[in-house]
Computed example of a mutant assay.
Amino acid sequence: MTDRTVRRGAPTSLALYDATARDAAAAVISQYSTSFGLACRLLGNRPRPHVRSIYALVRVADEIVDGPAEAAGLSPAEAEVVLDELEAETLTAIERGFSANLIVHAFALTARECGIGEDLVRPFFTSMRTDLSTSDHDDASHDAYVYGSAEVVGLMCLQVFVNAGSTHPVAPSDVLVDGARRLGSAFQDVNFLRDLGHDETALGRDYLGLATGATTRTAVLDRIDGDLAAAASVIQLLPSDCRRAVTAAHDLFAALSERLRRSGDTTARVRVPDPVKARIALRAVLGGSPRGARA
């Protein structure tokens, strides 16, 4: 019997700590993201807690560089120290299987079970660190930032989809890896366009190079739609307890992309109305194919 087993219906101290850490991660997603939270609820019981744990760590890191740390009085240099400490604690927790930080502990449990390693963790923190030092991006820095901030998060989730509940994690297929990366990239570029006004005025950042004329809004939307189409074609290859959630997330961002293309106001934050979100979720629950998927 291991330390994480349940004895006579009551969790051991470590099992209770694990459960509390996962509950803390679930609280983060419930407070911060209605759209991602909706998609997460469509996941099966096997992958759901792990995806919540990934999102929670990502959200905490993002908050260090995107406002709350500054509002608490931290300078960019101090915020970078906090981010470095979080990265170090995360990597240490994956190795040892324990952290005094509940969000890090929850992520480490997922990483150890599903095969998420340093090769995915470090690029994520590198991109977060970029937000403290880089305001304007060209094509190369955009691609590097998106890889670390979004594509690797998609790859972390893919590790969960393939490996949650297994004894020995395996590497996903190349086609699934490509689909996860392109879906993550599409999500990030949609968010860049949605938050364009806030990023420019409040944060002083130009992730897409629109201000310098390095690219155009139409070119970005064309790239998003190409990435969404590529991702749609491989969602059917995911385990059955993941497809509905990924389809719902894909179709939500496809709807956002459409609305962004129709909108003439680049400063207003485009959103999908709740009734439309509900229809997207229902269609996914009923087993509909992702929008744009080949028949």
Rank of each mutant, 00 (worst) to 15 (best):
residue 120 L to V: 06
residue 249 A to I: 13
residue 150 A to K: 00
residue 234 V to K: 12
residue 195 D to R: 06
residue 208 L to E: 07
residue 233 S to G: 15
residue 202 A to T: 10
residue 59 R to L: 03
residue 51 V to H: 04
residue 239 P to W: 00
residue 35 S to N: 09
residue 191 N to Q: 08
residue 177 V to D: 06
residue 12 T to R: 13
residue 214 A to E: 02
residue 135 S to I: 14
residue 94 I to E: 01
residue 115 G to W: 12
residue 129 R to C: 07
residue 143 D to E: 14
residue 164 A to K: 04
residue 165 G to L: 10
residue 278 A to G: 04
residue 31 Q to N: 04
residue 41 R to L: 03
residue 5 T to V: 15
residue 18 D to A: 09
residue 105 H to Q: 03
residue 256 L to G: 02
residue 179 G to N: 14
residue 295 A to G: 05
residue 61 A to M: 10
residue 276 V to A: 15
residue 42 L to H: 03
residue 191 N to V: 11
residue 206 D to L: 04
residue 282 L to A: 11
residue 3 D to Q: 14
residue 126 T to W: 10
residue 10 A to R: 10
residue 45 N to C: 03
residue 68 P to C: 06
residue 130 T to K: 09
residue 23 D to G: 13
residue 151 E to N: 07
residue 247 T to Y: 02
residue 56 A to D: 12
residue 9 G to D: 13
residue 69 A to K: 08
residue 249 A to Q: 13
residue 167 T to I: 07
residue 289 S to F: 08
residue 48 R to D: 00
residue 195 D to S: 10
residue 280 I to W: 05
residue 43 L to Q: 01
residue 295 A to I: 10
residue 103 I to Q: 01
residue 238 L to Q: 01
residue 165 G to I: 08
residue 3 D to L: 12
residue 151 E to G: 02
residue 72 A to M: 14
residue 181 R to Y: 01
residue 176 L to T: 11
residue 132 L to M: 10
residue 144 A to M: 05
residue 204 G to R: 05
residue 17 Y to A: 11
residue 16 L to Q: 11
residue 170 V to M: 03
residue 56 A to K: 14
residue 209 G to Y: 15
residue 206 D to A: 01
residue 3 D to V: 06
residue 218 T to F: 12
residue 180 A to N: 06
residue 274 D to A: 13
residue 7 R to D: 09
residue 56 A to S: 14
residue 154 G to V: 01
residue 119 D to P: 04
residue 30 S to P: 14
residue 142 H to R: 12
residue 6 V to K: 12
residue 196 L to S: 01
residue 139 D to H: 15
residue 106 A to F: 06
residue 249 A to L: 15
residue 56 A to P: 03
residue 141 S to R: 14
residue 78 E to F: 11
residue 29 I to N: 08
residue 131 D to F: 08
residue 275 P to H: 12
residue 3 D to I: 14
residue 87 E to Q: 15
residue 271 R to A: 08
residue 229 A to T: 12
residue 32 Y to G: 06
residue 287 G to Y: 08
residue 192 F to T: 09
residue 156 M to C: 11
residue 247 T to I: 09
residue 215 T to G: 01
residue 112 R to T: 01
residue 69 A to I: 09
residue 102 L to G: 03
residue 44 G to H: 09
residue 107 F to A: 00
residue 121 V to F: 13
